[in-house]
């Protein structure tokens, strides 16, 4: 994979972001800034709005209010910005009847990648999927589907990577493989925002932690400064 994912400076700037689903507020005046090279762990209880925030950043959900800027522009209805985003959600976003390789080729074509076959071959090698590439997705384990999802999300070398609870359902080996991949993906020119319910295992690789509470970011600080935030520290102990 190339060292610099994008010619644009990776940057996320969110100001006064609110989202309501019908009359239920999920995000309420949330503000957050992430810079090039940040690997930020987004923590918060179930239902705190982590998924909603990630989906807004991915351009899948329209905010009710507030400003969202990804690499200088709003991701809503903006294909140019979507090209800079890779998103790994709860589901792998692939087709069960197609093989792992066919799914990746489909996405490479959809993203209009030059040398698509080459990019797919590299991704299969990078995520150690060579032995499974010709199997239909429905026969793959959860761990292997997660690798496929990672390969799909990083195929176009995005500047912004969004992960939503990526460890869910993974066994020890698969989780360790994900952590290893995360270290490899964390490079200059990229921002990684990762929502995690149990973030302890990621604190060694993360640069920042953001705590989402009552629809807003209550703390956002470098991992090295966690000692100065006793409430967040005790929350992290509690959920570990």
């Amino acid at each position: 994979m190339a060292a610099n994912p994008t010619p644009y400076a990776a940057h996320i700037d969110i100001g006064g972001l609110s989202k309501r689903f019908q009359h239920r507020p999920v995000l309420n005046g949330l503000s957050l800034t992430l810079n090039d090279g940040d690997l930020c762990i987004l923590v918060g209880d179930n239902g705190a709005g982590k998924t909603t925030l990630l989906r807004i950043l991915a351009g899948l959900v329209r905010p009710s209010q507030g400003e969202v800027s990804v690499c200088g522009s709003s991701p809503i209805g903006n294909p140019r910005i979507r090209r800079m985003i890779g998103y790994v959600g709860h589901q792998p976003m692939v087709y069960q009847d197609l093989t792992a390789r066919e799914n990746l080729v489909h996405y490479a074509r959809l993203y209009g990648l030059a040398k698509g076959e080459e990019v797919v071959a590299d991704a299969i090698a990078a995520f150690n999927m060579a032995g499974y590439q010709h199997q239909p997705v429905r026969t793959l384990s959860r761990g292997m589907q997660q690798r496929l999802s990672l390969a799909r999300a990083t195929l176009h070398n995005p500047a912004i990577l969004l992960f939503d609870e990526p460890h869910t359902g993974l066994d020890q080996e698969a989780a360790a493989f994900f952590d290893q991949s995360l270290r490899r993906l964390n490079q200059p020119g990229r921002i990684i925002l990762l929502a995690a319910h149990r973030p302890q295992r990621l604190l060694t690789v993360a640069t920042h932690v953001a705590w989402l509470r009552e629809g807003a970011i209550s703390d956002h600080l470098p991992v090295t400064a966690l000692g100065s935030a006793p409430l967040l520290n005790s929350y992290l102990q509690e959920v570990s």
């Binding site: 991915a58 351009g59 899948l60 294909p79 140019r80 979507r82 090209r83 985003i85 998103y87 959600g89 709860h90 589901q91 792998p92 976003m93 692939v94 087709y95 069960q96 996405y107 959809l110 993203y111 209009g112 997705v137 799909r152 176009h156």
Partner: peptide, 18 residues
């Protein structure tokens, strides 16, 4: 329903095309 399975529709919507 093919697009609902595994949330594949999101994969299409994330693509950098109109």
């Amino acid at each position: 329903s093919l697009e609902r399975e595994n949330n594949a529709l999101d994969g299409l919507l994330l693509a950098p095309v109109d």
